[in-house]
Simulated scan of single mutants.
Amino acid sequence: MRRAGSVGEVFLAFLRLGLTSFGGPVAHLGYFRDDLVTRRRWMDDRAYADLVALCQFLPGPASSQVGFAMGLQRAGIAGALAAFAAFTLPSAVLLVAFAAGAAVIGAPIGDGILDGLKIVAVAIVAHAVWGMARTLAPDARRAGIAVVALALALLLPAAPGQLGALAMGVVAGLLLLRGADEPPGVELPPFGVPRAAAVSCLVLFAVGLVALPLLAAGTGAGVLALADAFFRSGALVFGGGHVVLPLLQAGVVQTGWVTPEAFLAGYGAAQAVPGPLFTFAAYLGAVSDVGPGGVAGAAIALVAIFLPGLLVLLGVLPFWDAVRTRPRVRAAMRGANAAVVGILGAALYTPVFTTAITGPGPLVLAVGGFVLLVAVKTPAWAVVLVGAAGGVILSLT
Protein backbone atom coordinates (compact mmCIF):
# COMPACT_ATOMS: atom_id res chain seq x y z
CA MET A 1 0.00 0.00 0.00
CA ARG A 2 1.33 3.41 -0.98
CA ARG A 3 2.04 5.66 2.01
CA ALA A 4 1.74 9.43 2.23
CA GLY A 5 5.33 10.07 3.29
CA SER A 6 8.84 8.65 3.43
CA VAL A 7 10.83 7.06 6.21
CA GLY A 8 13.41 9.84 5.99
CA GLU A 9 10.73 12.50 6.37
CA VAL A 10 9.35 10.75 9.46
CA PHE A 11 12.80 10.29 10.99
CA LEU A 12 13.80 13.93 10.58
CA ALA A 13 10.46 15.21 11.89
CA PHE A 14 10.66 13.08 15.02
CA LEU A 15 14.37 13.72 15.50
CA ARG A 16 13.62 17.41 15.81
CA LEU A 17 10.83 16.59 18.25
CA GLY A 18 13.14 14.28 20.18
CA LEU A 19 15.66 17.10 20.54
CA THR A 20 13.20 19.84 21.51
CA SER A 21 10.20 18.22 23.26
CA PHE A 22 10.62 19.07 26.91
CA GLY A 23 8.01 18.94 29.65
CA GLY A 24 6.72 15.37 29.89
CA PRO A 25 4.11 13.33 27.99
CA VAL A 26 1.33 15.93 27.94
CA ALA A 27 3.71 18.56 26.60
CA HIS A 28 4.91 16.05 24.00
CA LEU A 29 1.35 15.71 22.72
CA GLY A 30 1.32 19.49 22.38
CA TYR A 31 4.56 19.47 20.41
CA PHE A 32 3.22 16.68 18.15
CA ARG A 33 0.04 18.61 17.48
CA ASP A 34 1.89 21.85 16.72
CA ASP A 35 4.33 20.26 14.29
CA LEU A 36 2.61 17.23 12.79
CA VAL A 37 -1.07 18.22 12.89
CA THR A 38 -1.11 22.02 12.58
CA ARG A 39 2.02 22.62 10.48
CA ARG A 40 2.60 19.43 8.48
CA ARG A 41 -1.09 18.36 8.36
CA TRP A 42 -0.39 14.66 8.63
CA MET A 43 -3.87 14.31 10.18
CA ASP A 44 -6.57 16.59 11.53
CA ASP A 45 -7.42 17.35 15.15
CA ARG A 46 -10.22 14.79 15.36
CA ALA A 47 -8.08 11.95 14.03
CA TYR A 48 -5.24 13.02 16.30
CA ALA A 49 -7.51 13.13 19.35
CA ASP A 50 -8.90 9.69 18.44
CA LEU A 51 -5.37 8.35 18.48
CA VAL A 52 -4.51 10.10 21.77
CA ALA A 53 -7.66 8.70 23.40
CA LEU A 54 -6.87 5.18 22.18
CA CYS A 55 -3.30 5.34 23.52
CA GLN A 56 -4.52 6.69 26.87
CA PHE A 57 -6.61 3.53 27.21
CA LEU A 58 -3.62 1.26 26.55
CA PRO A 59 -0.73 0.38 28.87
CA GLY A 60 2.59 1.99 28.02
CA PRO A 61 4.00 5.44 27.27
CA ALA A 62 1.11 7.30 25.64
CA SER A 63 3.09 9.99 23.82
CA SER A 64 5.58 7.47 22.40
CA GLN A 65 2.71 5.26 21.28
CA VAL A 66 1.07 8.21 19.53
CA GLY A 67 4.35 9.02 17.77
CA PHE A 68 4.86 5.36 16.79
CA ALA A 69 1.33 5.18 15.34
CA MET A 70 1.76 8.45 13.42
CA GLY A 71 4.99 7.15 11.91
CA LEU A 72 3.22 3.88 11.05
CA GLN A 73 0.39 5.65 9.28
CA ARG A 74 2.76 7.98 7.47
CA ALA A 75 5.39 5.51 6.22
CA GLY A 76 4.52 1.98 7.33
CA ILE A 77 6.34 -0.13 9.90
CA ALA A 78 9.71 1.34 8.87
CA GLY A 79 8.25 4.79 9.52
CA ALA A 80 6.98 3.66 12.92
CA LEU A 81 10.43 2.40 13.90
CA ALA A 82 12.03 5.58 12.55
CA ALA A 83 9.64 7.73 14.60
CA PHE A 84 10.32 5.71 17.73
CA ALA A 85 14.12 5.73 17.31
CA ALA A 86 14.34 9.43 16.43
CA PHE A 87 12.11 10.52 19.31
CA THR A 88 13.67 8.21 21.91
CA LEU A 89 17.40 8.03 21.24
CA PRO A 90 18.42 11.66 21.94
CA SER A 91 17.30 11.53 25.58
CA ALA A 92 18.49 7.94 25.99
CA VAL A 93 21.99 8.82 24.78
CA LEU A 94 22.15 11.85 27.06
CA LEU A 95 21.08 9.81 30.09
CA VAL A 96 23.59 7.04 29.37
CA ALA A 97 26.27 9.73 29.10
CA PHE A 98 25.12 11.10 32.44
CA ALA A 99 25.36 7.61 33.93
CA ALA A 100 28.92 7.41 32.66
CA GLY A 101 29.76 10.63 34.52
CA ALA A 102 29.58 13.14 31.67
CA ALA A 103 29.95 16.75 32.82
CA VAL A 104 26.81 18.85 33.03
CA ILE A 105 26.30 22.60 32.97
CA GLY A 106 26.59 23.99 36.47
CA ALA A 107 24.24 26.20 38.38
CA PRO A 108 22.86 28.79 38.03
CA ILE A 109 22.90 28.58 34.22
CA GLY A 110 21.96 24.89 34.15
CA ASP A 111 19.16 25.43 36.66
CA GLY A 112 17.98 28.46 34.70
CA ILE A 113 17.79 26.48 31.45
CA LEU A 114 15.85 23.69 33.17
CA ASP A 115 13.43 26.19 34.74
CA GLY A 116 12.96 27.94 31.39
CA LEU A 117 12.14 24.65 29.66
CA LYS A 118 9.53 23.87 32.32
CA ILE A 119 8.01 27.33 31.85
CA VAL A 120 7.82 27.07 28.07
CA ALA A 121 6.04 23.71 28.46
CA VAL A 122 3.17 25.69 30.00
CA ALA A 123 2.82 27.68 26.78
CA ILE A 124 3.07 24.55 24.60
CA VAL A 125 0.41 22.65 26.53
CA ALA A 126 -1.88 25.71 26.80
CA HIS A 127 -1.64 26.15 23.02
CA ALA A 128 -2.56 22.50 22.46
CA VAL A 129 -5.50 22.64 24.89
CA TRP A 130 -6.80 25.86 23.32
CA GLY A 131 -6.59 24.54 19.77
CA MET A 132 -8.06 21.13 20.56
CA ALA A 133 -10.89 22.63 22.64
CA ARG A 134 -12.01 24.77 19.70
CA THR A 135 -12.19 21.68 17.47
CA LEU A 136 -13.23 18.91 19.86
CA ALA A 137 -15.46 20.72 22.37
CA PRO A 138 -17.19 23.36 20.23
CA ASP A 139 -20.70 23.03 21.70
CA ALA A 140 -22.30 22.98 25.15
CA ARG A 141 -22.54 19.19 25.47
CA ARG A 142 -18.93 18.48 24.57
CA ALA A 143 -17.69 21.46 26.58
CA GLY A 144 -19.60 20.04 29.55
CA ILE A 145 -17.95 16.63 29.04
CA ALA A 146 -14.55 18.36 28.97
CA VAL A 147 -15.27 20.17 32.26
CA VAL A 148 -16.38 16.96 34.00
CA ALA A 149 -13.29 15.17 32.67
CA LEU A 150 -11.09 17.97 33.96
CA ALA A 151 -12.67 17.62 37.42
CA LEU A 152 -12.23 13.84 37.47
CA ALA A 153 -8.61 14.08 36.35
CA LEU A 154 -7.86 16.64 39.06
CA LEU A 155 -9.76 14.99 41.91
CA LEU A 156 -8.70 11.37 41.38
CA PRO A 157 -5.14 9.93 41.34
CA ALA A 158 -3.30 10.14 38.02
CA ALA A 159 -4.05 6.85 36.21
CA PRO A 160 -7.54 6.23 37.72
CA GLY A 161 -8.47 9.85 37.08
CA GLN A 162 -7.42 9.75 33.43
CA LEU A 163 -9.04 6.39 32.72
CA GLY A 164 -12.18 7.39 34.62
CA ALA A 165 -12.41 10.63 32.65
CA LEU A 166 -12.05 8.79 29.34
CA ALA A 167 -14.63 6.19 30.34
CA MET A 168 -17.03 8.97 31.33
CA GLY A 169 -16.45 10.62 27.95
CA VAL A 170 -17.22 7.38 26.10
CA VAL A 171 -20.49 6.85 28.03
CA ALA A 172 -21.49 10.50 27.65
CA GLY A 173 -20.78 10.34 23.93
CA LEU A 174 -23.01 7.31 23.50
CA LEU A 175 -25.80 8.94 25.50
CA LEU A 176 -25.58 12.53 24.31
CA LEU A 177 -23.79 12.66 20.95
CA ARG A 178 -25.52 10.00 18.84
CA GLY A 179 -26.36 11.54 15.50
CA ALA A 180 -24.44 14.73 16.23
CA ASP A 181 -23.18 16.54 13.17
CA GLU A 182 -19.45 16.28 12.54
CA PRO A 183 -17.66 18.01 9.67
CA PRO A 184 -15.73 15.63 7.42
CA GLY A 185 -12.13 15.17 8.50
CA VAL A 186 -9.01 14.28 6.58
CA GLU A 187 -9.36 10.84 5.02
CA LEU A 188 -6.64 8.66 6.50
CA PRO A 189 -5.31 5.36 5.23
CA PRO A 190 -5.63 2.43 7.63
CA PHE A 191 -2.66 1.66 9.83
CA GLY A 192 -1.99 -1.39 7.70
CA VAL A 193 -1.27 -3.96 10.43
CA PRO A 194 -2.49 -7.43 9.37
CA ARG A 195 -4.74 -9.10 11.93
CA ALA A 196 -2.49 -12.15 12.13
CA ALA A 197 0.46 -9.91 13.00
CA ALA A 198 -1.69 -8.06 15.54
CA VAL A 199 -2.70 -11.27 17.30
CA SER A 200 0.95 -12.34 17.33
CA CYS A 201 1.88 -9.07 19.05
CA LEU A 202 -0.77 -9.59 21.72
CA VAL A 203 0.47 -13.15 22.28
CA LEU A 204 4.06 -11.90 22.62
CA PHE A 205 2.88 -9.31 25.17
CA ALA A 206 1.18 -12.00 27.26
CA VAL A 207 4.11 -14.40 26.93
CA GLY A 208 6.51 -11.69 28.05
CA LEU A 209 4.51 -11.02 31.18
CA VAL A 210 4.32 -14.69 32.10
CA ALA A 211 7.55 -16.19 30.77
CA LEU A 212 10.12 -13.55 31.68
CA PRO A 213 9.68 -13.79 35.47
CA LEU A 214 9.67 -17.59 35.28
CA LEU A 215 12.81 -17.68 33.15
CA ALA A 216 14.56 -15.12 35.34
CA ALA A 217 13.76 -17.08 38.51
CA GLY A 218 14.60 -20.44 36.94
CA THR A 219 17.92 -19.47 35.40
CA GLY A 220 19.13 -16.76 37.76
CA ALA A 221 20.35 -14.83 34.72
CA GLY A 222 20.82 -11.14 35.44
CA VAL A 223 19.98 -10.19 31.86
CA LEU A 224 16.58 -11.87 32.13
CA ALA A 225 15.92 -10.37 35.56
CA LEU A 226 16.70 -6.91 34.20
CA ALA A 227 14.49 -7.41 31.14
CA ASP A 228 11.66 -8.74 33.31
CA ALA A 229 11.70 -5.77 35.71
CA PHE A 230 11.52 -3.21 32.93
CA PHE A 231 9.04 -5.18 30.80
CA ARG A 232 6.63 -5.34 33.75
CA SER A 233 7.08 -1.63 34.43
CA GLY A 234 6.19 -0.81 30.84
CA ALA A 235 3.27 -3.25 30.73
CA LEU A 236 1.49 -2.22 33.93
CA VAL A 237 1.40 1.57 33.63
CA PHE A 238 -1.23 3.66 31.83
CA GLY A 239 -0.49 7.08 30.40
CA GLY A 240 3.27 6.84 30.87
CA GLY A 241 5.36 9.68 32.25
CA HIS A 242 5.76 10.03 35.99
CA VAL A 243 3.22 7.27 36.66
CA VAL A 244 5.94 4.72 35.90
CA LEU A 245 8.30 5.96 38.64
CA PRO A 246 6.84 3.86 41.51
CA LEU A 247 7.12 0.72 39.39
CA LEU A 248 10.72 1.52 38.46
CA GLN A 249 11.59 2.25 42.07
CA ALA A 250 10.10 -1.07 43.16
CA GLY A 251 11.91 -2.89 40.38
CA VAL A 252 15.44 -1.52 40.85
CA VAL A 253 15.72 0.30 44.20
CA GLN A 254 13.78 -2.00 46.50
CA THR A 255 15.63 -4.96 44.99
CA GLY A 256 18.99 -3.30 45.72
CA TRP A 257 20.07 -3.07 42.10
CA VAL A 258 20.29 0.76 42.14
CA THR A 259 20.92 2.93 45.20
CA PRO A 260 18.27 5.50 46.17
CA GLU A 261 20.84 8.28 45.63
CA ALA A 262 21.63 7.09 42.10
CA PHE A 263 17.92 6.73 41.34
CA LEU A 264 17.18 10.31 42.39
CA ALA A 265 20.21 11.68 40.53
CA GLY A 266 19.07 9.96 37.35
CA TYR A 267 15.52 11.17 37.83
CA GLY A 268 16.81 14.73 38.09
CA ALA A 269 18.80 14.28 34.88
CA ALA A 270 15.73 12.83 33.15
CA GLN A 271 13.88 16.07 33.90
CA ALA A 272 16.59 18.06 32.12
CA VAL A 273 16.53 16.21 28.79
CA PRO A 274 13.92 16.23 26.01
CA GLY A 275 11.92 13.23 24.92
CA PRO A 276 9.99 10.55 26.83
CA LEU A 277 10.55 10.02 30.54
CA PHE A 278 10.62 6.27 29.89
CA THR A 279 14.20 6.76 28.67
CA PHE A 280 15.05 7.03 32.37
CA ALA A 281 15.20 3.24 31.98
CA ALA A 282 18.38 3.60 29.91
CA TYR A 283 20.11 5.34 32.82
CA LEU A 284 18.87 2.74 35.31
CA GLY A 285 19.99 -0.15 33.10
CA ALA A 286 23.42 1.44 32.73
CA VAL A 287 23.99 1.83 36.50
CA SER A 288 22.22 -1.35 37.65
CA ASP A 289 24.24 -3.94 39.58
CA VAL A 290 22.19 -6.66 37.87
CA GLY A 291 22.76 -7.35 34.19
CA PRO A 292 25.68 -6.24 32.03
CA GLY A 293 25.46 -2.54 32.97
CA GLY A 294 26.79 0.21 30.75
CA VAL A 295 25.52 0.59 27.21
CA ALA A 296 24.37 -3.04 27.00
CA GLY A 297 22.34 -2.75 30.21
CA ALA A 298 20.88 0.53 28.98
CA ALA A 299 19.82 -1.06 25.68
CA ILE A 300 18.15 -4.02 27.43
CA ALA A 301 16.24 -1.79 29.84
CA LEU A 302 15.23 0.66 27.11
CA VAL A 303 13.87 -2.02 24.75
CA ALA A 304 12.16 -3.90 27.58
CA ILE A 305 10.27 -0.90 28.96
CA PHE A 306 8.97 0.32 25.58
CA LEU A 307 8.26 -3.08 24.01
CA PRO A 308 5.02 -4.02 25.82
CA GLY A 309 3.27 -0.74 25.02
CA LEU A 310 4.22 -0.96 21.35
CA LEU A 311 3.14 -4.62 21.14
CA VAL A 312 -0.28 -3.81 22.61
CA LEU A 313 -0.67 -0.85 20.25
CA LEU A 314 0.13 -2.99 17.19
CA GLY A 315 -2.23 -5.63 18.57
CA VAL A 316 -5.27 -3.35 18.70
CA LEU A 317 -4.72 -1.08 15.66
CA PRO A 318 -6.28 -3.34 12.98
CA PHE A 319 -9.40 -3.80 15.11
CA TRP A 320 -9.44 -0.04 15.68
CA ASP A 321 -9.29 0.42 11.90
CA ALA A 322 -12.32 -1.83 11.53
CA VAL A 323 -14.58 -0.07 14.02
CA ARG A 324 -13.52 3.59 14.19
CA THR A 325 -15.88 4.74 11.41
CA ARG A 326 -19.06 3.14 12.81
CA PRO A 327 -21.70 5.64 14.04
CA ARG A 328 -21.84 4.35 17.62
CA VAL A 329 -18.05 4.27 17.83
CA ARG A 330 -17.82 7.78 16.39
CA ALA A 331 -20.28 9.02 19.02
CA ALA A 332 -18.23 7.37 21.75
CA MET A 333 -15.04 8.85 20.37
CA ARG A 334 -16.55 12.34 20.15
CA GLY A 335 -17.21 12.04 23.87
CA ALA A 336 -13.75 10.62 24.52
CA ASN A 337 -12.14 13.40 22.47
CA ALA A 338 -13.95 16.03 24.53
CA ALA A 339 -12.70 14.22 27.64
CA VAL A 340 -9.14 14.36 26.26
CA VAL A 341 -9.44 18.16 26.23
CA GLY A 342 -10.37 18.05 29.92
CA ILE A 343 -7.53 15.66 30.75
CA LEU A 344 -5.02 17.88 28.99
CA GLY A 345 -6.49 20.89 30.81
CA ALA A 346 -6.01 19.14 34.15
CA ALA A 347 -2.42 18.29 33.26
CA LEU A 348 -1.87 21.91 32.22
CA TYR A 349 -2.76 22.92 35.76
CA THR A 350 -0.87 20.15 37.55
CA PRO A 351 1.91 19.25 37.20
CA VAL A 352 2.80 21.60 34.30
CA PHE A 353 1.63 24.98 35.67
CA THR A 354 2.04 24.34 39.39
CA THR A 355 5.66 23.21 39.08
CA ALA A 356 6.80 25.81 36.54
CA ILE A 357 5.04 29.06 37.48
CA THR A 358 6.61 30.12 40.76
CA GLY A 359 6.29 33.91 40.46
CA PRO A 360 5.59 36.89 38.18
CA GLY A 361 8.71 36.37 36.02
CA PRO A 362 7.91 32.77 35.04
CA LEU A 363 4.27 33.75 34.39
CA VAL A 364 5.32 36.55 32.03
CA LEU A 365 7.69 34.19 30.19
CA ALA A 366 4.96 31.55 29.84
CA VAL A 367 2.43 34.09 28.52
CA GLY A 368 5.04 35.42 26.11
CA GLY A 369 5.65 31.92 24.79
CA PHE A 370 1.90 31.42 24.35
CA VAL A 371 1.62 34.68 22.40
CA LEU A 372 4.54 33.63 20.18
CA LEU A 373 2.78 30.36 19.39
CA VAL A 374 -0.73 31.75 18.86
CA ALA A 375 -0.29 35.26 17.48
CA VAL A 376 3.16 35.20 15.86
CA LYS A 377 2.93 31.52 14.72
CA THR A 378 6.48 30.88 15.95
CA PRO A 379 7.56 27.21 15.64
CA ALA A 380 7.61 25.31 18.92
CA TRP A 381 11.35 24.60 18.71
CA ALA A 382 12.07 28.35 18.52
CA VAL A 383 9.81 28.99 21.52
CA VAL A 384 11.83 26.35 23.39
CA LEU A 385 15.02 28.31 22.72
CA VAL A 386 13.36 31.54 23.86
CA GLY A 387 12.18 29.80 27.02
CA ALA A 388 15.64 28.43 27.80
CA ALA A 389 17.22 31.86 27.34
CA GLY A 390 14.48 33.46 29.42
CA GLY A 391 15.04 30.93 32.20
CA VAL A 392 18.73 31.81 32.33
CA ILE A 393 17.92 35.52 32.53
CA LEU A 394 15.43 34.89 35.36
CA SER A 395 18.00 32.80 37.26
CA LEU A 396 20.57 35.62 37.07
CA THR A 397 18.23 38.41 38.20
Rank of each mutant, 00 (worst) to 15 (best):
residue 26 V to H: 03
residue 65 Q to E: 03
residue 239 G to E: 00
residue 49 A to M: 01
residue 269 A to L: 13
residue 43 M to C: 04
residue 22 F to Q: 04
residue 138 P to N: 07
residue 134 R to Q: 15
residue 270 A to W: 01
residue 159 A to L: 11
residue 247 L to Q: 14
residue 192 G to D: 01
residue 135 T to W: 15
residue 156 L to F: 07
residue 201 C to G: 08
residue 96 V to A: 05
residue 212 L to S: 03
residue 364 V to R: 00
residue 390 G to C: 05
residue 289 D to Y: 13
residue 175 L to N: 09
residue 280 F to L: 06
residue 170 V to T: 06
residue 235 A to D: 12
residue 249 Q to T: 14
residue 117 L to C: 04
residue 38 T to L: 12
residue 241 G to E: 04
residue 111 D to L: 05
residue 329 V to T: 09
residue 92 A to S: 07
residue 124 I to N: 02
residue 87 F to I: 10
residue 97 A to Q: 13
residue 341 V to G: 01
residue 7 V to E: 00
residue 109 I to C: 12
residue 100 A to N: 15
residue 54 L to K: 00
residue 6 S to F: 14
residue 113 I to P: 00
residue 387 G to Y: 05
residue 288 S to P: 10
residue 340 V to I: 01
residue 306 F to W: 07
residue 243 V to E: 02
residue 247 L to A: 14
residue 21 S to H: 06
residue 214 L to D: 10
residue 228 D to M: 04
residue 313 L to F: 03
residue 394 L to Q: 08
residue 143 A to T: 05
residue 158 A to L: 14
residue 116 G to C: 02
residue 2 R to C: 11
residue 188 L to P: 08
residue 167 A to H: 05
residue 298 A to H: 07
residue 50 D to M: 09
residue 140 A to F: 14
residue 42 W to Q: 03
residue 153 A to N: 10
residue 51 L to N: 05
residue 77 I to V: 11
residue 37 V to M: 13
residue 282 A to C: 11
residue 285 G to T: 13
residue 189 P to I: 13
residue 68 F to I: 08
residue 9 E to F: 03
residue 231 F to P: 01
residue 97 A to G: 12
residue 21 S to W: 06
residue 144 G to F: 02
residue 222 G to N: 02
residue 320 W to C: 03
residue 9 E to T: 02
residue 236 L to Q: 13
residue 259 T to Q: 11
residue 336 A to F: 11
residue 338 A to N: 05
residue 215 L to E: 07
residue 349 Y to F: 14
residue 309 G to H: 04
residue 202 L to I: 04
residue 261 E to G: 06
residue 141 R to N: 11
residue 276 P to I: 15
residue 144 G to Q: 02
residue 172 A to K: 15
residue 223 V to K: 08
residue 358 T to P: 03
residue 23 G to Q: 00
residue 165 A to N: 01
residue 135 T to H: 15
residue 198 A to T: 12
residue 183 P to L: 15
residue 282 A to M: 09
residue 208 G to K: 04
residue 130 W to G: 14
residue 39 R to Q: 07
residue 279 T to F: 00
residue 161 G to T: 04
residue 142 R to F: 11
residue 82 A to L: 11
residue 275 G to W: 02
residue 315 G to M: 14
residue 139 D to P: 12
residue 147 V to M: 07
residue 228 D to W: 02
residue 204 L to T: 06
residue 205 F to C: 06
residue 194 P to T: 08
residue 92 A to M: 03
residue 30 G to I: 02
residue 126 A to I: 09
residue 388 A to R: 13
residue 359 G to H: 03
residue 253 V to C: 00
residue 346 A to M: 07
residue 157 P to K: 04
residue 28 H to A: 08
residue 29 L to V: 09
residue 316 V to C: 05
residue 179 G to W: 10
residue 63 S to F: 06
residue 230 F to M: 03
residue 344 L to S: 01
residue 151 A to H: 12
residue 36 L to Q: 04
residue 85 A to N: 03
residue 275 G to T: 07
residue 62 A to V: 12
residue 186 V to D: 15
residue 171 V to N: 10
residue 354 T to D: 15
residue 51 L to S: 05
residue 39 R to Y: 05
residue 254 Q to W: 11
residue 350 T to D: 15
residue 180 A to C: 12
residue 182 E to V: 10
residue 216 A to E: 02
residue 180 A to W: 10
residue 204 L to A: 08
residue 209 L to W: 07
residue 293 G to H: 10
